[in-house]
Write a protein that binds this DNA or RNA. Structure first.
Lengths: 141, 141
DNA sequence: ACTAAAAAAGATAAAAAACTCTTTTTTTCT
DNA sequence: AGAAAAAAAGAGTTTTTTATCTTTTTTAGT
């Protein structure tokens, strides 16, 4: 479904969101350790997220990553789009270039429902909302 | 979502199903041309489908591929599992190894719904049923 | 029996994704 | 000002996926 980069990105963003209260910024190393993902690879992902302003960063000593209030307000969907491109939500499930309501592929109707579901998953909730849920329900990243 | 192999496989199976009535077997070349996919790659895919008995083949002159009655009865799900592995329907959407109802990941609930939808898409309908729909509604492969 | 047509099998090549390493820039603290 | 800490940037490497090429096996028709 999602690429590995995207999965790591979602988890990293949630990790940051859950620790947004802490004063200190959070470094790549900490996130990589906690999520058990390769550090240099995660660094690249965080760079990308930062470029798209989905997370915030400060350089230098005591620097690291954190979530601004604006960052927290973004829907999770943006994180996915940032990593896997916006097409994941719109492209044909069979990869046909011309698939549309006018010219539907064999799975178009079913895929439509499925896609609506997907959008409900990551499209409606903001990072803040999802983080609260994770916290309330004690979910694992 | 699905790998390219899987997308090609679905379309190829449907193509075969739609031409199941014709007397002659269908060669790789014809399918590749009609679906506009790379022939040698498609050949590999058809081999795999044939090994898993999701399509049928005969060698030699006038040989080629076709769908047996048993092949037609299989749910599309099997084609997907044959190409992308059975995990696509069960594995955690965030790639967590321990994700389950007992120990849900942050997207588990939402993913559950989404996955149900996916299973409805490819799990319930047989190749025959789907092919009929394609034919009735004049859908494009 | 021979030829030719087709899939099966195996080996290779190219492209993309995942992952790593090195250098540069920014910034804080002394 | 200088040292050190941290992200940013850039340049590799490895692995997986996608795609191709070559050889072998099967089989129908002559």
């Amino acid at each position: 479904m999602f690429s590995k980069s995207c999965k790591y990105a979602i988890r990293a963003v949630l990790y940051l969101a859950l620790h947004a209260d802490s004063e200190a910024n959070i470094g790549v190393k900490e996130i990589a350790d906690r999520l058990d993902v390769p550090k240099p690879f995660l660094a690249k992902i965080l760079q990308q997220l930062s470029r798209y302003q989905l997370i915030s960063s400060v350089k230098g000593p005591n620097g690291g990553f954190f979530m601004s209030t604006e960052n927290m307000r973004e829907p999770l969907r943006k994180v996915v789009e940032c990593m896997d491109g916006p097409e994941v939500f719109s492209s044909c499930i069979l990869g046909l270039p011309v698939c549309s309501s006018q010219n539907p592929c064999p799975l178009h109707t079913q895929a439509f429902i499925f896609r609506e579901g997907l959008l409900k998953v990551v499209g409606s909730k903001s990072v803040a909302e999802l983080a609260r849920q994770v916290s309330d329900e004690g979910l694992k990243l």
